[in-house]
Amino acid sequence: MSKSISRILMGLGALVMAVGAIDAVQAQTSSKLQEVLQRGKLIVGTGSTNPPWHFRDEKGQLAGFDIDIAKIIAKGLFNDTNKIEFVTQASDARIPNITTGKVDITCQFMTVTAARAQQVAFTLPYYREGVGLLLLKGGSYANYDALKAAGDKVTIAVLQNVYAEEMVHQALPEAKVDQYDSVDLIYQALNSKRADAAATDMSSLRWFMKQNAGRYQDAGYAWNPQTYSCAVKLGDPDWLNFVNIALREAMLGVEFSEYKASFERWFGEAPPEPKIGFPSELR
């Protein structure tokens, strides 16, 4: 009798231990990293209407710098840049789609701010955006210094925004500011010489210059810095760490050639080469 009871107890003990072991395995697999690996594809939230960051090319495929960054992460996960499902989302859906788990990661020219960092976890930055001035090649003003020297005689076209006037005046305190409500209109204002320069994001400026080679030039001054990072859900250090490693090694390590090729393709200039020797980011 007592023998059978002890057997039952032993059996129960084994069961409890087995359940405990399953729990432990589940705890290990609860990171997004394991989930993504098991699923076999990465779900990335991004936009589809803003070149050179994320847009549909003429074949209808998503392309741009954000898309290439997502591909670098997918390559790190699966050694295959095609194992991605892109979820197109508006800019204001970036944070909710992460917090509700609709996407594993968002790469959509997301400006890092302390307020946003309370809601999502930002990865290492992969670009620093700024505002620059686009000039017509051979126009009345050759560069930023000429614009600044001209004082209130210059007119700057800028995309309509609450801070637009203040932003332009940070660089050109006396310039006249004309606000337009879409990007193509600020380029049109420049083409028709209604404006002497167009103030726009450096990335858009470089993209536009590359699309229209020889017609425009950069005034050679950039201000108003904004850091761009991908974002993941708060509270998952393993997943955040994985993405950070993948991004860091793209910017400074083994995948630099991919990052460089993409940077050159979308921004028309090469990023600085990582220095061989001591890893300078640890200085």
Partner: peptide
């Protein structure tokens, strides 16, 4: 919107 984003022909 995607087409306009690419070719600016709003």
């Amino acid at each position: 919107q995607e087409i306009v984003g690419r070719n600016f022909m709003t």
